[in-house]
């Protein structure tokens, strides 16, 4: 498995310090992500504890799910600082993955969320060079050039520089920690 070089889709915008309780509330952690039918359930409840005024910026009060109760129409999340802070629950990147999110672009991440996202290969966590959550609007159509770390806003015709993925790029390219460790000979193939 390797990363898709180009990812295109609509974006959902959130603010600062979106913690793991907002991404997937604790009451839904009873589902076991190791069971595929239950993995799907996390998509249904993804972002369900984000306060309505902060849901889908700049206006807020934009539902994350529209047509399908499990999978969102959005491909990207653009957010502010410290995305994924709080608990170590891997259910957080799993919920976003199950909801169809392929890329998060935040100013920076809480450490455990970032590591979980990379380790499981659930989504690509890019960091933006500028504060995009106040530039990009929910519903904007984006195109990400993964190798160049450039984000094109097709709605406004702007281009944003992202920070390179750096040392986690090979893990994401391998598809996560386990395939990476096999490639490196840490684990038997």
């Amino acid at each position: 498995m390797s990363l898709q070089p180009t990812i295109t889709g609509k974006t959902y915008v959130l603010g600062d310090n979106v913690d793991t309780d907002q991404i997937i509330p604790a009451q839904y952690l009873t589902y076991n992500p190791a069971i595929p039918e239950e993995y799907r359930q996390f998509g249904k409840y993804a972002l369900s504890s984000v306060p309505p005024s902060q849901s889908g910026l700049p206006k807020g009060h934009v539902p994350f799910h529209t047509k399908d109760e499990f999978v969102s129409d959005y491909t990207f999340i653009v957010a502010g600082k410290n995305f994924g802070c709080g608990s170590s629950r891997e259910h957080a990147p799993i919920a976003l993955d199950a909801a169809g999110i392929k890329v998060v672009v935040a100013e920076f991440y809480a450490r455990i969320f970032f590591r979980n996202a990379v380790n499981g290969g659930y989504l690509i966590p890019f960091e933006s060079a500028s504060r995009l959550c106040e530039t990009v609007c929910t519903g904007d159509e984006l195109r990400l050039d993964v190798p160049a770390a450039k984000l094109h806003n097709l709605t406004t015709n702007e281009v944003y520089e992202l920070k390179p993925l750096g040392e986690v790029a090979p893990i994401l390219e391998a598809g996560g920690l386990f395939p990476y460790a096999r490639q490196q000979g840490m684990l038997k193939a």
Partner: peptide, 24 residues
Amino acid sequence: DSHTCTAGAFGEFATGVGNTDAGF
């Protein structure tokens, strides 16, 4: 669990990890 860091009180390196790290 993210509050695994509590055990740093005993002079050890203690930190929270996700399922994939723990499985590994």
